[in-house]
Design a protein around this nucleic acid. Sequence first.
RNA 1: GGCCCCAUCGUCUAGCGGUCUAGGACUCCGGCCUUUCACGCCGGCAACACGGGUUCGAGUCCCGUUGGGGUCACCA
Length: 532
Amino acid sequence: MTNVLPRHSYPMTVRTRFAPSPTGYLHIGGVRTALFNWLFARKHGGQFILRIDDTDQERNVEAALEPILEGFRWLGIDWDEGPCVDGPHAPYFQSQRSEQHQAAAKQLLVAGFAYRDYATPEEVQAERESAEKEKRDYVYSRRWMAETDEQAAAFEAEGRKFVVRLKMPRDGKCEFHDLIRGDVAFDWAREQDHVIQRADGSCLYHLASVVDDSDFEITHVIRAAEHLSNTPRQIFIAQSLGCNLPEFAHLPYVAEPSGTAKISKRKLDKYLKNRDFKSLCDHGNAIAAKIGHETTADTFNPVIVDFYREVGYLPDAIINYLLLLGWSLDDKTEEFTRDEMITHFSLERVNKSPASFDPQKLSAFQLRHMQHLPIKQKVALVVPFLQKTGLVASPPPCDTAPHLIKIVEAAGDRIKTAGDILEFDEFFVNDDALPFEEKAFKKRVCKDGAAELLREFRDILASAEPFDRETCEAALRSFIESKEIKIGEIIHALRVAVTGKGVGVGMFEALEILGKDSCLVRIDRCLARADD
RNA sequence: GGCCCCAUCGUCUAGCGGUCUAGGACUCCGGCCUUUCACGCCGGCAACACGGGUUCGAGUCCCGUUGGGGUCACCA
């Protein structure tokens, strides 16, 4: 067995892959891994392949796969080969490639790199336990190993069944070069004789993965660091099979908010103690509640990509944020378009240490990308939310476009995610259905003299012409001048009267958007209520 | 526990032996703008885990300690 592996140069184009198993959701850390693979392939004019690792998966693969594909489509991470698009190496489902895997297992067996093992799981377990009790490093004794047909027959006579195990080297080191971590070495002696094929003939992940990577001509295996310690056995398989070895690059994982452990969707309770993570959740839940989206923590949380789509985040913002989680170009550049990412990306600049997920920084990227969005795109983003809540008909009446533009423009940066449009429902509800926020009403309208001022200004507003923001503002300014009061003494009451809320878009924009009739009706309604 | 990996402000990071009294971004804290809330603008707090080497010189190289993490399946 050679220890030092040669560096291969690849005459063929770069081919990377992301191999999710169909779990029913797309994990944020998985996205980052996929992104780096995608970027690397695009950067080198190669191909990005999606392969489905559904070995051992029961039926329903399709249902469990759909959210993952949908997530990638939404994020704009496209694949050159894989489900739905197929390609020269189809099928791209591992479960449909068992013939190749079995042939590989057989080849390893014949060549002596693997053996039939007749041990029962209990016997192996017993060995493992006694090693542990004696504080010895565990290595399988190979007691039930059959290398000849005679041995096999003897075991079979006892009614035993065999699995196929790798016959791992027991001296020397497995040394390889990782594109991110540099030279890495593991002692062969500590590697187990991993099972590659079960008694029923089905093959296991490591074999399948190596065979598929080789068949698909994957040149660079870019994956999470947790696979680093799996690499020796995969190298052993690949070499024993006579396959070309791909380059390896092990990415640091995405760590939990305010922590260093790998982020997981099962530890939500813990993350909720983090103030920023909680507010990210709360914001999402509030929007989900409005649009009637189910918010079970299991299916709807910031570790799952769906969350961001439902709440109205921008794919570009998420991608940009994820890109900087473990990679940087220099000491200042933070914003990247897709093209810029592709031209600048390199594995050399990927960090070695885990990067913790920071909800605030994500929000900052979201804001910046929203600010760059042309108004029409912003409107298009927001409309589905209005439709889901019945605030706008579907399809929207053709005369609503200018109205929507005005609202979205007026709301400006207050719309941080598309779902935030729902905070501006006052521009969509009927005048007689406008709810008044109790706190704001009490504080601003029930205040001494406020209602009186409002009543007076109402009549001035009634004669404002044209009813636009400039005229309204001029009217109010001259009103406060004549009354010798400060603007704050009336404008808040006016806001509550016409929007029902204490906060919102600029006052005069709001008046203009609503129009004179609505404003007057709303003020009257407010005054009537104040009288009660 | 064995093995492996990692280590610069609270967080993401720049730094590849001297230009570092360590730079940027997010957060946070002041202030400005202002009709609210956002936004924007200005300013501020804040880090090389520790100990040994190597070197004229170490955040940068080496070793150790400590700390954190990953992985140890007939899961993927």
